[in-house]
Design a protein around this nucleic acid. Sequence first.
DNA 1: AGTGTTACCCGAACGC
DNA 2: TGCGTTCGGGTAACAC
Length: 275
Amino acid sequence: MPELPEVETVKKGLQECIIGEEIAYVTVYYDRIIQNTTVTDFCKSFIGQKIVDVKRKGKYLIFIFQDVILVSHLRMEGKYFIRHQEEKAKHEHIIFGFISGKTLRYHDTRKFGTMELFLTTNLKEILKQKPLVNLGKEPLEPDFNGTYLHQKLLKSKRPLKSVLLDQTIVSGLGNIYANEVCFYAHLNPSQPVNTLTSEDFQNIAISAKKVIIKAISLGGTTIRTFVNAHEISGRFQNELMVHMRKKCCICGGEITKEFVGGRGTYYCKNCQKMR
DNA sequence: AGTGTTACCCGAACGC
DNA sequence: TGCGTTCGGGTAACAC
């Protein structure tokens, strides 16, 4: 469930502890995480490479090395830990060993996560290819606004929440924050987007920014298992308005759970009326 | 072309 | 307790 704020939190944690570290070896225990190359080539390519920076695009982490770039998606339960220990723990699938003796360990109970290796440091080129191509604007980009959403969704009859989850329209929102954005905008998650006004779109854009800024400032949301590189939990779960909640904090009414686009959706029938 | 649906990844939680 | 079933987020592939 790492969404934009969680991935941003992971990124910051990694920046604090692995920039400048030089890779001595890489060990892969589960092949299928690696998407676009063989395990042998994957491991070889990192040897002797120093980590220059860690960036983020949508929900993707981008590790910049001297000559290569690694793009990593955590999907549901991917995590990065930094440890000194050598023994592989359960659910650790890839271990990056540094000259210093530190190790960066990719842990993923569901094995849903993906990694792609690029043999270039030209980020602009990488943004033009899978998996980063086609990502929509992020809520915190300056030109993510009502006009942008309106123009992207002019003819769409899809439910608002499905559109918020569509990474080609907005990148970074997942199920938790999509629920929260609908609540802040006082809109029903099932509302077809072609029935929304430009004020609604403006409202949605502002709500998305608000939710994401606050979640980042609190280190993300820990509902099941999310922790950052220092294994610290996020605190935004205390601020959730509708996701996994029972009562609406505005009107005191019951929070409804139903499925929209096949995803569990939480909202207040009273505060988020269908129009 | 745009939209909705399904499959997939797999372990944990649940129910009997 | 043990075993089968259900669940689930994000994405790609598929069907219409």
